[in-house]
C-alpha cells in the first residue's frame, strides 16, 4: 500500500543526500585551497556556505512538518530523527570547511611547513572518511561503518601528533606563532570533520537497525561477511567531486 507521506520521506532522504554531497564538495575544495594555496577557491567556499545554510533550514522545516503531521513511528521515526541530526552534523562540517578555507589564506605563504608536517596525508585521510560516509548515506550499507570508526581514530591520532609538533615548533621559534596558530585551527577543524563523519555513520546505523552506537563505537560489529573498504565497492557511485554537488535524481522540490 502506497502511503501518502512516503513522498515526503523520499524528499527528505533526497535532501539529506544533497546536503551530504554539497558538504563533501565544500570540504574537498577547502582541502584543495589549503594544499594549493588557492585564495580564489577559498573565497568561493565561503560564498557557497550560504547554500549549505539554506538547505539546512529546508531540511529542518521538512522534518518539523513530517513530525507534526504524521506522528511517525519505528523506521519512519528513526529516519526523521536521524535526518535532523545528520543535517545538523553536515551543517557543522560545512562551517569547518569554511574555517579551513579562511585560515588557508593565512598559511598559503608557508608551504614548507605544511609539507614538513605531512598535513597532506591528514587531508587525504579526512577527504576519504567524508566521501565514505556520504557513500554510506547513499547506500545505507552499514558493513563499512567499522572502517569509518577506525579511520576516524587514525585521523584523531595523526591530528594530535601534528598539533604536538606545531606546539613544539612554536616554543622554539616565536616568528612562526601566527602561522602555527592558524595551522592548529585548521588541524582542529580537520579532526572535527572526522568526528562529525562518525556521528553520521552512527545515525545511519540507527536508521538501518535501531542500534544506538553513540559512546559504544568500540563494540560495533559490522554485519557478517564484510570487511572491504567502502571506497572499493560502493553500491552506488560516490558523489562526483567534480560535478555539481547540488543536483538531485528527482528534480521536483517543494
Amino acid at each position: 500500500m502506497e502511503r501518502h507521506f512516503e513522498l515526503e520521506l523520499q524528499k527528505l532522504n533526497r535532501r539529506v543526500i544533497k546536503m551530504g554531497n554539497l558538504v563533501a564538495f565544500q570540504v574537498h575544495n577547502a582541502f584543495d585551497a589549503l594544499l594549493r594555496g588557492d585564495v580564489e577557491l577559498a573565497e568561493q567556499i565561503i560564498e557557497n556556505d550560504r547554500k549549505v545554510d539554506k538547505l539546512d533550514t529546508k531540511i529542518d522545516k521538512l522534518c518539523q512538518r513530517i513530525f507534526a503531521l504524521t506522528q511517525p513511528v519505528a523506521t519512519d521515526l528513526r529516519l526523521i530523527m536521524s535526518s535532523l541530526k545528520m543535517n545538523n552534523d553536515l551543517e557543522r562540517m560545512g562551517d569547518h570547511a569554511v574555517t579551513i578555507a579562511q585560515k588557508s589564506e593565512g598559511v598559503s605563504e608557508y608551504r614548507d611547513i605544511i609539507d614538513e608536517l605531512h598535513i597532506d596525508e591528514l587531508v587525504k585521510m579526512t577527504d576519504m572518511i567524508v566521501n565514505d560516509v556520504i557513500t554510506i548515506l547513499n547506500t545505507r550499507n552499514t558493513a563499512f561503518v567499522k572502517d569509518i570508526f577506525d579511520l576516524a581514530q587514525a585521523i584523531e591520532e595523526k591530528a594530535q601528533g601534528i598539533s604536538a609538533k606545531i606546539i613544539e615548533e612554536m616554543m622554539h621559534k616565536t616568528e612562526v606563532i601566527v602561522v602555527a596558530t592558524n595551522l592548529i585551527v585548521i588541524i582542529t577543524a580537520i579532526e572535527r570533520l572526522a568526528g562529525y563523519s562518525t556521528n553520521i555513520a552512527e545515525s545511519i546505523v540507527f536508521i538501518v537497525d535501531g542500534r544506538i552506537m553513540k559512546h559504544k563505537k568500540k563494540n560495533f560489529e559490522s554485519p557478517a561477511g564484510t570487511s572491504a573498504s567502502v571506497t572499493e565497492t560502493p553500491a552506488e557511485p560516490a558523489p562526483d567531486q567534480t560535478g555539481d554537488p547540488t543536483s538531485e535524481a528527482t528534480p521536483s522540490e517543494g
Binding site: 500500500m1 502511503r3 511517525p72 513511528v73 519505528a74 523506521t75 519512519d76 521515526l77 528513526r78 537497525d209 535501531g210
Partner: peptide, 20 residues
C-alpha cells in the same frame, strides 16, 4: 521498543501503515 525499533518486519509494516 515496538514503536521505535520492532524486531519483526510485519509489526513494523503494520504500525507504520505499510501493511496490505
Amino acid at each position: 521498543k515496538i514503536f521505535t525499533a520492532p524486531d519483526i518486519k510485519q509489526t513494523e509494516e503494520y504500525i507504520t501503515g505499510r501493511f496490505g
